[in-house]
Amino acid sequence: MDVQEARKRLAFLERAEALKDTFRSGFTSGGRSEDTASHTWRLCLWVLVFEDQLAGLDMAKMLKMAVLHDLGEAVSGDIPATEQVGDKSADERADFIELLGDLPDPDAFLSLWDEYDGATSDEAKVIKGLDKLETILQHTQGKNPADFDYGFNLGYRREATAGHPLLKMLRAMVDEKTRGRMEAKVNKELR
């Protein structure tokens, strides 16, 4: 690798650092706003934790998709699920392309992002489902504001978690945790 190519890769990594300062609408269990980089890290961990249940799927591809799936948010930020209207894919894709800049082979990353976004492979479908489950689980763990709408979780992207037996099982478990948070909130309000 020559020095110029190495500089381009470093420049990309510097731009991607913005993901550490890109906040989501959820909160950590300690009450801090969750950042997108932390969400991405835990999505990767989901893949590793359930790898034995995903036989036949390409784990390296899934981890790459998990790392790349929200990277465009480093440019324009995250849009909370409750505020999303229409198809946000085109904007996210444009942001992702902008972030890639002049990497030597941006098409490899873009191809994986497109596969994830379109859910055109079994790997992409599972990552999409795990992504939604990670978000919902964080909502059940977060130190959320008093007006947090846990009910939203119960219908959130249900279709993304319905295709694989593991996703279905995990969805039922995460929904149970959501119902527990809803019940705890009602009991707190009644006191």
Rank of each mutant, 00 (worst) to 15 (best):
G30V: 09
A184Q: 12
D117H: 04
G163I: 06
A81L: 04
G142Q: 06
G155H: 15
V3R: 15
E92R: 13
V186K: 15
D2C: 09
G163S: 10
L19G: 03
K128L: 01
D52M: 11
L54R: 00
D52A: 13
L43F: 07
V75C: 06
D105T: 02
T135N: 06
L71G: 03
E159Q: 15
L54D: 02
P104D: 11
M65Q: 02
I79F: 01
E83Y: 06
P104H: 09
V67N: 12
E134M: 10
M59T: 15
A18M: 05
E34I: 06
Y116V: 01
Q84H: 06
P165K: 08
S89W: 04
I136E: 04
G101A: 09
G26I: 13
L190H: 11
A6N: 10
A184N: 08
A81P: 05
S76C: 10
E83V: 01
K132F: 05
A184R: 11
G26H: 13
D114V: 00
D102P: 09
A184V: 04
R181L: 07
R9T: 12
N187A: 14
V49C: 11
G180I: 12
V126R: 03
L71T: 02
E98Y: 08
H164I: 03
F109A: 08
I79D: 05
E134S: 12
K61S: 04
L68T: 03
F50M: 02
K168M: 09
K177I: 05
K168I: 12
